[in-house]
Nucleic acid binder design. Structure first.
Lengths: 144, 144
DNA sequence: ATTAAATAATTGATGTATCAATAATTGATA
DNA sequence: TATCAATTATTGATACATCAATTATTTAAT
């Protein structure tokens, strides 16, 4: 492949694959009749893994902007899967917790999420994934 | 790295890198005072590479849904960079063409787009890119 | 202690993604 | 040829991404 082609193809493919992955997750959730999106799931899971985390930390952890975090949390709150609790030490901060219902839906989704990951990496060896990760890191650095 | 980690890390990184790349492009365009987004650019460039193409073919080529194509073309049309011409053989179809202004902006953007690609693949060898492409194809197949 | 700077979260505006439904037209089939 | 199916494009609804601006609060500096 020519140089120019190689560079544009891999970047295009990077974007379309990421988009396809997101679409795939959303469809699998829907197929299981779970009313959640892939982005809502990322936040929900991460709150559960760090109960009490605040919004800005959650945004850093999930690589989402504060504005997006705010709005997606509104949805999760409406679904009663999380709560925002006032932080006793700072009135600016909300601490985030999953609710009982939240934990229920997490328990349902976890095995499905595993299936999704397994499917996505089918026929790809660990070594290749490691290499893949390294290249993604390199690209991220380049775009830093 | 543990198996589970490896699988979830690489998928997360795939998505965040794609997102970062998109953000990067938009910022570079803005920095050059060019009023275009990365998605508008993809469509504009592809119309130019296949003048007369119709919307559904353009969508396939750019891996975008018809609805998204329609709306982004509305924007490009408003900016007077493209036109939708009635197809004489089928009243359902519009043929897409870049305008004079469209070609002007394309000429301005092309070298910038090259810079972006060059920056993104800095310090990455062709062989690695080829391998990277193969893995992306594999993942795409898995999610097909 | 006051003022200035930084931080946490929200809101508004615009653009894109996706699904679902629809309109208009064309193609296939019986 | 009349009907049914497929195709092309659009629109509506909802969610997310991003930038910019704003509010409220906290921290730092003078």
């Amino acid at each position: 492949m020519k140089d120019k082609e190689l560079s544009s193809v891999f970047l295009f493919k990077l974007e379309t694959t990421a988009k396809q992955f997101r679409r795939y997750k959303n469809r699998v959730f829907k197929k299981h009749n779970i009313d959640i999106t892939s982005d809502q799931w990322i936040l929900l899971k991460n709150i559960n893994e760090a109960e009490g985390i605040n919004q800005s930390e959650l945004g850093i952890r999930c690589k989402k902007e504060a504005a997006a975090v705010t709005r997606t949390l509104d949805i999760l709150e409406k679904k009663q899967w999380i709560t925002r609790e006032a932080n006793p030490n700072s009135r600016r901060v909300y601490n985030l917790f999953t609710t009982k219902n939240g934990k229920k839906i997490i328990a349902i989704i976890l095995p499905i999420a595993l299936e999704i990951r397994t499917q996505a990496r089918m026929n790809i060896a660990d070594d290749d994934l490691t290499m893949f990760n390294r290249l993604l890191d390199e690209i991220l650095t380049n775009l830093g």
